[in-house]
Amino acid sequence: MNRCKEVLQLQLLRYSIIIVGAVLLPNKLLAQKEFYTPKSLLIPLHDQNNQLHISFGRGGGYDFNLSYAFTDKLALFSAATFDNDTKKRISIIGDRYNVDRNDYAIKGGLGYFTKTANPEFPIVEAYIGTGITKVDNYWHFTGDTDGEVTQARYWSVFGQFNAGKRVSKSEYGLGLRLNYSQYTDFNFYGTHINSIARKSSYKNLRGLTADPAISAGYNLYGVNINAQVGVAIPLIAPSVERTDTHTTYEGSTETKTLMISEEKIRLYSFIGKLSLQYKLNFNKKR
């Protein structure tokens, strides 16, 4: 029976890696300015006191997570993601473009974990936390030096519920995160050189998302090779104020025209990560 479960869990890991690979491929069919960049869910599956969980991987940038169970029920966690890379994209009409990124996200918080009598999901976790994210990207069509710059910053608060199982050679988990994000800064503008300069901004952009995810891992020489895939689903999308500033130049004369409108911006994104994870147990398991 245990052998069959391990085979099923290994198959789940393989399928998750395929899906994550599709999410993380350099070419994507979804064209967007990528101003909302939720990171992977924390699913350490703690099961004892004095347990340190370490994770390093790739997903929305280079991702590093730490969580430590300082009692047999409570854990602290921190996470950081840095994305300084060029992503190659394909728009829905087939045009190829690049997104040069200089982003980061930092978050931390507190978690609670316990054991249950459920044989399929014996470990249950709940986390609350907060974080900040900076988005600074420049996108342009392949072969064109002019494009559009997006600069944004937002903070977020979240609550998360996990359930999963760890065995000798593998583990799997399910996670659901409710995430509220509030933008403190959001500007974008074109870099084309002409007689009209355009700059746009959003004021008080915010949103609530539900982020379901699945993870699966396989232990190899004590290291857990883990894949996670999920999606951020917008739950609320209130109208926000958009300001477009058009600046025209005629000789030494500069004229600015403001246009204010209302828009609904939905926060959504794919979530995916491939990582190497390791647990250090400073106490013997009782």
Rank of each mutant, 00 (worst) to 15 (best):
M1S: 13
M1Q: 11
L10T: 12
R14H: 07
S16R: 03
S16I: 04
V20F: 01
V23E: 09
A31T: 03
Q32T: 11
P38F: 07
H46V: 04
N49G: 04
L52A: 07
H53E: 03
S55C: 08
S55R: 13
F56G: 11
G60L: 03
F64T: 10
Y68V: 01
L74Q: 01
T81F: 03
F82G: 05
D85N: 15
T86E: 14
I93H: 09
G94D: 06
G94E: 04
N98K: 14
D100R: 12
Y104M: 04
I106A: 09
Y112N: 04
K115T: 08
P119L: 05
V124Q: 09
E125A: 03
Y127P: 00
I132Q: 14
N137A: 06
H140W: 01
H140F: 05
F141H: 09
D146G: 00
E148L: 11
A152T: 04
R153G: 08
W155S: 12
S156Q: 13
F158V: 01
G159Q: 06
Q160E: 12
K165W: 00
K165R: 15
E171K: 12
Y172V: 05
S181H: 08
Q182Y: 15
T184I: 08
I193Y: 11
I196H: 08
Y202N: 06
L208S: 07
T209H: 10
S215Q: 14
A216C: 08
G217N: 05
L220V: 15
Y221M: 11
N226K: 15
V229F: 13
L235H: 06
A237N: 15
S239N: 11
V240N: 10
T243G: 04
T243E: 12
T247Y: 04
Y249A: 03
G251T: 03
T253A: 11
E254W: 05
T257R: 14
I260R: 14
E263L: 12
E263C: 02
L267V: 08
S269C: 05
I271P: 00
I271D: 01
L274S: 04
